[in-house]
Amino acid sequence: MSRPALSMSGVEKSFGPFRALGPVDLDLMANERLGIIGPNGAGKTTLINCITGVLRPDSGSVRFEGADITALPSFRRARLGISRTFQIPHPFRGMSVVENLLVPLDYIHGVEDRHRRAAEVLERVGLSARAAYPSEDLSQLELRKLELARALVGNPKVLIADEAMAGLSEAEIDEVLAILYSLNEQGVAVIMIEHIMHAVMRFSQRVVCFETGQLIASGTAEEVTRNPTVQKVYFGEQAHH
């Protein structure tokens, strides 16, 4: 856990006059488990979009394993080993569940037996029985699992889970946590964006909190949740719900 896998410095993103993110400086160490919390609209997903290349930051730089990837298109970042789930599942409609996994396996090279790898990952997320189903027939819950399966099937080095547990039952949250843990044990750095606090607390070695595009706190899960500012902006807001 010495050198950063991802390193962001001065990353900023605005939509029109509205600055959704930044400037942000944040490192993700190799093999780290990082939790990101913050109220809705805080800029968490925007940060992920800047890391994965879905959005280009207006200024600042993103580095991956030391190399500047700020200008790289998304697909190249994916091939380097940066993988993500989408907060709102983006299944490849018109394809079966297993074919959804074959897309990254076709384009992110390095897996020998693609069909075996796809079957193995489906087994792991509990979608084996659905392998041949059209992805449009999946329940919301299964779509979240598919999203996760597709993100990890290509053996990424960094996995970013954007609210992958929203709507899951406690048992399913435990399943997803177990999957993320075992990935991490194999050396994958994991960023978990989550509103489910007990999951973040259990999982993360370090937690950062965002608010209105700014990183307002960083530390162990305990430190961050005890931080008075975090309490005010985040748990204050949560309490209203």
Partner: peptide, 23 residues
Amino acid sequence: WVGRGLRAVRASEDAAECSGVPT
């Protein structure tokens, strides 16, 4: 792989790119 990639593009360009597809 070409057709699979194109179908992925058709379903979601962002998800396709993030899966390594040069859309």
